[in-house]
Design a protein around this nucleic acid. Structure first.
Length: 278
DNA sequence: CTCCTGGGTA
DNA sequence: TACCCAGGAG
């Protein structure tokens, strides 16, 4: 059986494609901590951490986090402030809150419950991509999902020199090429091969979903991150004037960031107008 | 659909 | 500079 992109410059046999991906994986596949004992819990923690964050930065956080909180139960029994502290430096702190809330849902269900993708998507912080990854990695089931490294592999092999490649065009190829006998390892192999292709200069700029992120320096999220880390390391609630003196940002930006942080539930304001982590 | 969120590393 | 095993809100 042959597979091809809509206007791909060449065709590739399914078996040849798989062989190429597995050949790389068998030689250079990564030994990542979350690939050992890929339980639902360990897969969830790693997938949340890996959203928009590179593998090299996640590894040590994953080890420390799963050691301190070895189960959904242990995680949801901790306070959000504790979780944010363990998360400090990883960034995108909303993920920590989503993970904590997801742990609360899952810990309330019978242990060993097997989730469908539809059920997972309803949990906070889990979209279609993360749901598919969880099904594939935790249950070793052939879920069809796409993320940045998979995108790289399929664009490189099946949409060469083609602009504006949509995920909708790629997904059927993922579905056709998936190794149904070994979906977990197949996706590990795709990830590792995609990372390799990126190191070789491949990229996703021809993806229809490619977008450049806005600059971090001078942004509101720089202020947010700084405020959160400042307050996590402060023993008592802190007033707005205190923050304006302590942090090198315009008052307006500090107030705006605080409002967002409170609205998202990462922080609260007491009746004296002082702020602290929830 | 667009915009927002983080910070380290290559 | 670029970009990470994206998801939620508007």
């Amino acid at each position: 059986m042959f597979i091809e992109g809509i206007v791909s410059s060449y065709r590739m046999n399914t078996k040849d494609f798989r062989s190429r991906v597995y050949a790389y994986y068998n030689q250079q596949g990564r030994d990542l901590p979350w690939r050992h004992q890929p339980t639902l819990y360990r897969v969830c923690v790693s997938e949340f951490m890996l959203q928009q964050t590179q593998v090299s930065r996640v590894i040590n956080y994953f080890r420390a986090f799963t050691q301190k909180y070895p189960s959904f139960k242990a995680l949801h029994q901790a306070s959000l402030t504790e979780i944010l502290t363990a998360w400090q430096g990883l960034g995108y702190n909303r993920r920590a809150k989503y993970l904590w809330e997801t742990a609360h849902h899952i810990a309330a269900q019978p242990s060993g419950k097997q989730y469908t993708a539809e059920e997972l998507v309803k949990l906070p912080g889990i979209g279609r991509g993360t749901a598919g990854a969880i099904i594939a990695y935790a249950y070793d089931l052939p879920a069809v999902f796409i993320e940045t490294n998979i995108r790289t592999v399929f664009i490189h092999h099946f949409f060469t020199n083609q602009p504006n490649v949509s995920d909708a065009a790629i997904l059927p190829l993922i579905e056709k090429t998936i190794d149904r006998n070994n979906p977990r390892e197949w996706y590990w192999a795709l990830m590792d091969y995609g990372t390799y292709l990126k190191q070789q200069g491949a990229h996703n700029r021809s993806s229809a979903h490619y977008s450049k992120q806005s600059k971090f320096k001078g942004s509101l999220r720089q202020v947010r991150g700084h405020i959160l880390s400042y307050l996590l390391n402060m023993p008592t609630p802190v007033s707005m004037p205190h923050l304006c003196t302590a942090l090198p940002y315009p008052k307006n930006n500090i107030q705006k960031a605080l409002n967002h942080l409170v609205q998202e539930g990462l922080m609260s304001k007491n009746n004296k107008g002082q702020y602290c982590c929830v």
